[in-house]
Every structure is written in C-alpha cells, then in structure tokens.
Computed example of a mutant assay.
Amino acid sequence: MSDLARQMNDYRLTTAEILYHMPDHPGLLQTFVWQHLDLVPKFPELRKFLDFWAHNLDGRLHSVRVAHVGVIQPAAWANRAEFTLN
C-alpha cells in the first residue's frame, strides 16, 4: 500500500525515541530514533519493530518515547500579509 493510501486510512507519522543498554557496556544507554507511518493508538508497526528488537538484537530495551502527528491535514491559513498603498 502506498504512503498516501495509508495516510488516508488513518496512519500517522510516528516517531519513537528508543533508549537501550549498550551490549558491551550495560551501564551506558544509547539512543535510536525510529520513524514510520503507524496506526494510533495501537501502534502495530512499532510493536512489531520492538518485538523484533527484543528477540533478535543484543541491546536490552530501556525505554521508548512515542510522538505522532497527522501528515494530511487541512491547510492552516493565517492572514499575516501587510499591504501598503502609496
């Protein structure tokens, strides 16, 4: 399915900041930023990615912070133009 079709079906641009423990130095945290179109509030794409991470990667997850925004929105119009007549 194309990105436009997904957006028309309520998918939203989702960004996740993932903190994880470094495999060689578990006391240190590293950041990974993930961004994808996903369904809010169930986040199936993000859950699938985090499940893959937990089962296949060495860095143990510490925390995940999620933000989302609708990509297709009505245009916001602000009347900020200034016209001067001489």
Rank of each mutant, 00 (worst) to 15 (best):
R60T: 07
S2A: 03
D38T: 00
L13R: 07
R80T: 13
P44W: 10
P23V: 12
A16C: 06
I72L: 15
F43G: 02
A5C: 06
D3M: 06
Y11P: 01
V69D: 15
A76R: 09
D10M: 10
L19R: 14
A76E: 12
F52I: 09
L37V: 01
V33H: 01
L19P: 02
H55A: 13
G70N: 15
A54Q: 09
F52A: 08
A16G: 02
L13P: 00
L19T: 08
F83R: 10
L50Q: 06
L46R: 04
R6D: 06
L61N: 04
E45Q: 11
L13W: 13
D3T: 02
Q30F: 06
L50D: 05
G70C: 15
P41D: 01
G70H: 14
L4G: 02
H68C: 12
L57N: 01
D51T: 13
R65I: 12
A16L: 04
W77A: 10
N56W: 09
R12E: 11
L85W: 08
V66F: 08
Y20P: 02
Q35W: 00
A67N: 09
M1F: 10
D38S: 00
R47N: 14
T15Q: 13
F43Q: 05
R80Q: 12
D3H: 03
V33K: 08
P23N: 06
F43A: 03
H36R: 08
L13A: 09
T31I: 03
L39N: 05
E17Q: 09
V66P: 05
A16T: 03
P74L: 04
D10E: 07
A67D: 15
M1I: 11
N86W: 10
Q73L: 09
R65C: 05
S2L: 02
L46T: 01
V33Q: 07
R65Q: 15
T31Y: 06
T15M: 05
V69R: 12
L29T: 07
V69T: 15
T15V: 11
A81Q: 13
P26H: 03
V64Q: 06
F49D: 00
R47Q: 10
T15R: 14
Q35E: 11
L46W: 04
H21P: 02
Q30Y: 07
Q73D: 02
S2W: 01
G70Q: 15
K48E: 11
D24W: 12
E45Y: 07
L37T: 02
W77C: 08
V71R: 07
H62W: 10
S2E: 09
A75P: 04
G27L: 08
G70T: 10
I18K: 00
I18E: 00
G27V: 13
L13N: 06
L28S: 10
H36A: 12
W77Y: 14
A76Q: 13
G27I: 08
P26A: 05
